[in-house]
Simulated assay, not measured.
Amino acid sequence: MNKYAVQLAFAYMGVIIGGGFASGQEILQFFTGYGMASIAGTLLAGLLFAFLGMQIARISTNLQAQSHKDVLHLLFGHRAGAIMDILLTFFLFGVGVAMLAASGALFKQQFGFSPVIGSVFMTVLIVLTLCLNVKRIIHLVSLATPLLMALVLVIATYSLYTSSADIEQLLTLSQDQHTVAPHWALGAILYASFNIAVGFPMLAVIAGRSRDIKSTSRGGALGGVGLGLLILLLNVSLFFNLNQLQGAELPTLMLASRLSPVVGILMTVSIACMIYSTAVGMFFAFSARFSRPETGRFRLMSLSCCSIGLILSFVGFTTLVGSVYPLLGYLGLILIGAVFVNWFRDRCKPASAEKHVA
């Protein structure tokens, strides 16, 4: 597996983890609350991420996609694709705004600063990043992923080693957790649908810049497997410490701080990096929808949309998440369905129908 495939995998993971991993609350509500069945849920989500990542990367490379619009037109046709494009573009911007608000909330909770300081800091960082070339953006977005994986592995090991509650107590506590769906499988599918809608635009642009379908497909699949592994480890860590996480808004940060103040600081930095990765991915894909990357128009578009996003972020993180995320989840379900239909149609075609772009 070549270097580009690994970078694509890390970038794919990096865009998604900011919206789906940062606080740990997402894992609690979509997985841990289902008790032992949550393990099956994490495996299902991981399989979906791997399959969808591979298929989206393959389609994007085949099309040499310049933005997610090209892929949507293939999946849905011209008219329906145009509607999906408008909806997804709108929600991309909304998630980017939510990440700016999340940065403000993190600075307030951890350092006692005004949320405005955190949001402005992240906005400036994002604009500077978007002024770089695409390869450097991919590199920067993928940097946070190895740090997060290492921290989650350390926290999971420590959590299992120091857990003081028995299984019966943990199962009882898990039943009291709020969950997003009546069944673990539906929770896993909903989690994948929201996050794939977040990761799809950036993945489409990155994979579209390569001509090697095999490498990009492998990168998409590897990123999905990595996401599944992270979900599994974090879910196990949270489950075995439910007795100490009651009422925690940022359970991952609480686990890290219990291990060591130094690890707590590292987790704070990691969360900031996750927010940064997702925000860059969202504003990059949004700007790429209207202008070609690495051009003056693209940089001007990036500056404009980030500035507007900064103003809108003052509405507050909780409010934005409550309004943007659920609707994006429904959009993600439609996208997943279209990818599966496209895959099934390709399976029915002769092997020579899809050529390898050398």
Rank of each mutant, 00 (worst) to 15 (best):
M1C: 10
A11P: 08
G14Q: 11
L28G: 04
I39D: 05
T42V: 13
L47Q: 03
F51L: 11
M54T: 00
H68E: 02
F76I: 02
A82W: 05
D85M: 09
I86E: 03
F91S: 05
F91E: 00
F91H: 05
A102K: 02
G112H: 13
I117L: 15
V120A: 10
F121N: 00
T123Y: 05
L125G: 02
V127C: 12
L128S: 13
N133V: 05
V134E: 14
I138A: 13
I138N: 12
P146I: 13
A150F: 12
V152A: 11
V152P: 01
S159T: 11
D166G: 11
T172I: 08
T172G: 14
Q175W: 10
Q177F: 12
V180Y: 07
A181Q: 04
P182R: 07
I189A: 06
F194K: 11
V198E: 04
P201M: 08
R211D: 04
G219V: 03
L222H: 02
G224K: 03
L229S: 10
L234P: 04
N235G: 12
Q246D: 13
G264C: 06
M274Y: 03
S277M: 10
F283Q: 07
F284S: 06
S291R: 08
G296N: 14
C306G: 10
S323D: 12
L331Q: 07
G332A: 09
L333Q: 06
I334A: 15
D346Q: 15
S352H: 11
